[in-house]
Nucleic acid binder design. Structure first.
Length: 576
DNA sequence: ATTGGCTGCCC
DNA sequence: ATTCTGC
DNA sequence: GCAGAATGGGCAGCCAAT
């Protein structure tokens, strides 16, 4: 069979890469959807459709598979440099800075460099073969083995294929203006089903590939919720309390600064899943044991895991030291005792409750709390903004993050960020900082400096010799227009260039907003900021006006002195 | 046996 | 997590 | 109003270098 014929077959990886590129170059979401839909229609084989939908919509592995390639930009980039026989630091890195994308750089280099072209066998791979490569990458662990597999694969791919192979392998976006919403629309169009049906089945199965196959074979109605298979979480939209209109329609509960989780239980079988649908049961054995002992009938709960010690909810930083621990020792379990505080019930006694209004789900949750001794959040009625203000203050006193306002009649809208759940938070503070370094952006921000290191003043601080020291980085909170102005000014105040980073003369003052200050001994300042973002570019201020490290220390002390109220007084959760 | 770099995944 | 932009 | 895209800090786990 002639090569060209083989390669034009729809089930080749080349066809998928070409389709992705065509989608990227197409303007307008409807046109993109049409282009993708047409591609899906050409895939005759179920397995190929499964893989194609998974690659375009989720990546190398289905979200619920728990598998990862564990290949990052360093591994791919150094190998790419070797592949082209160029120096990584001297040639590859500058190219990456210019294009703003490692995979884009690799595509360009492979297209233009003879050493890379010489390695190409031109054989081409099927979707199934590429899937096998991803599986092999998951199975090996050393970087050498991973690079060996990558090298062999790239020899059989065109530069365009390599680009998408890398993007699919990572957990990030394909950056073709086409994420899960568009994929579901494309499947709806290709196989003639309502978008909402496709979306619903996607939520239930957790797999876009499976959903695609079911859509093709008219099996969407067969999809059903299954215990121990996690569903996407309902998310909340940020609001300022003054912008809420009908307070009576909402109930308030405190927003815990912990780890969101979905618990599935039946008898002594219990599993918990993280927001990204990873199985995190192993990290919290005492929660598993505790719920196993309760012998619940088939039940799914939505809640938050917190470190809870001496009747007090402990800071998130303490929980962080447990989150990633795969097999926590007895010592760790004792030092960081955790509690799962539930706030919703999604399934009980063979019945899914997603479509029921919140009030009804809550009624059941309260009953379960009484029957099985489950800690649940306390919901409070509100009628006006003043109520929210009072409750918000109480939440902060508990060491909680803020308030959730939940629409009383809302269904559990999984996987979506709607206005049924609102989160009310308040910035932890702000600092006037100096811009110290500017870093090259990537993707659509390629070619500009879009990411900045901000510093506080230590000019009159005997502990330091320099004028300013970094306190955090920020990349957002400015408009595209402001970014242009910043880039113009940066050109004029560049002192040094280190690869993708510019060292700047002190000139631009940024009002930096953040949610929290934390101690971090590994940094020069000893402190870092949680969720730093631009609040304003202070063209009106000069480097002399920048806040000092002593100001940071003072803010931190103030925070520490606000003692956390134990749950014994005025609790934010209870057992009915 | 330690340390540092890379990766994934919580917020 | 947060934020801005295009549709 | 939603979806998409580009990015923050910090932790554990794992591998590579020393």
């Amino acid at each position: 069979m002639p090569l060209s014929h083989t390669l034009s077959k729809p089930n080749t990886f080349r066809k998928l890469a070409e389709t992705a590129q065509a989608i990227a170059e197409t303007r307008g979401s409807n046109a993109k959807i049409a282009r993708c839909s047409q591609y899906f229609s050409t895939l005759e084989n179920d397995r190929d459709l499964d893989l194609a939908a998974c690659f375009l919509g989720e990546g190398a592995f289905s979200d619920v598979s728990g598998k990862r390639a564990s290949v990052g930009s360093r591994t791919t980039s150094t190998l790419a440099a070797d592949f082209c026989e160029i120096d990584y630091d001297l040639v590859f890195k500058p190219c990456k800075t210019a294009t703003g994308s490692a995979s884009e750089t690799i595509e360009k280099l492979f297209t233009n460099i003879q050493e890379a072209k010489d390695k190409w066998s031109g054989r081409g791979l099927s979707l199934e073969e590429v899937k096998n490569i991803y599986d092999r990458l998951y199975e090996v662990s050393s970087r050498n083995d991973k690079q060996q597999i990558l090298q062999e694969s790239w020899e059989q791919m065109t530069p365009l294929e390599v680009k998408y192979f890398i993007r699919i392998m990572g957990r990030g976006s394909l950056r073709i203006g086409f994420e899960s919403k568009s994929i579901t629309s494309a499947l709806a169009k290709a196989f003639d089903h309502p978008v909402k049906d496709i979306r619903h089945v996607h939520m239930l199965t957790g797999s876009i590939g499976k959903t695609a196959v079911m859509a093709k074979n008219n099996q969407l109605h067969e999809a059903d919720f299954q215990l121990f298979q996690p569903v996407a979480f309902m998310l909340a939209s940020p609001v300022e309390s003054r912008s809420v209109e009908d307070f009576e329609a909402y109930v308030a509960e405190e927003k815990f600064d912990g780890m969101r989780c979905q618990l599935h239980a039946k008898g002594d079988e219990v599993k918990i899943f993280s927001r990204d649908l990873n199985d995190i049961s192993g990290s919290f054995p005492e929660i598993i044991k505790e719920f196993a002992a309760k012998e619940l009938p088939g039940t799914v709960l939505d809640g938050e895991i917190c470190v809870y010690k001496e009747d007090t909810i402990q800071p998130f930083q303490l929980l962080q030291q447990r989150m990633g621990v795969k097999k926590p020792s007895k010592k760790i379990q004792k030092e960081y005792p955790v509690a799962l505080i539930s706030f919703d019930v999604l399934y009980h006694n063979e019945e899914t409750l997603f479509a029921k209004p919140l009030t009804e789900r809550r009624k059941l949750l309260n009953e379960l709390s009484g029957e099985y001794q489950l800690p649940v959040t306390i919901q409070k009625a509100i009628t006006a903004e003043e109520d929210v203000d009072v409750l918000f203050k109480q939440a902060l006193e508990h060491g909680n993050e803020g308030l959730m306002l939940k629409h009383k009649h809302s269904a559990y809208e999984y996987g979506q960020r709607k206005k049924s759940w609102l989160k009310v938070k308040q910035p932890g503070g702000s600092l006037d900082t100096i811009m110290m370094y500017a870093h090259a952006g990537s993707g659509k921000r390629g070619g500009t400096y879009s990411d900045f290191t901000l510093g506080v003043s230590v000019r009159e601080d005997e502990r330091y010799e320099e004028e300013f020291i970094p306190i955090g980085k920020a990349y957002g909170g400015y408009t595209d227009d402001e970014l242009k102005k910043l880039n113009a000014r940066i050109k004029e105040i560049t002192a040094e260039k280190y690869g993708p980073t510019l060292g700047l003369y002190p000139d631009i003052v940024i009002e930096l907003e953040f949610d929290d200050i934390q101690v971090n001994k590994r940094t020069k300042a000893n402190y870092t900021l949680r969720f730093p973002r631009f609040k304003a570019i202070r063209w009106d201020l000069s480097p002399d006006d920048v806040d000092t490290l002593k100001d940071v220390e003072r803010l931190f002390e103030e925070k520490l002195n606000q003692e956390r109220l134990g749950q014994a007084q005025n609790p934010s959760f209870e057992v009915k």
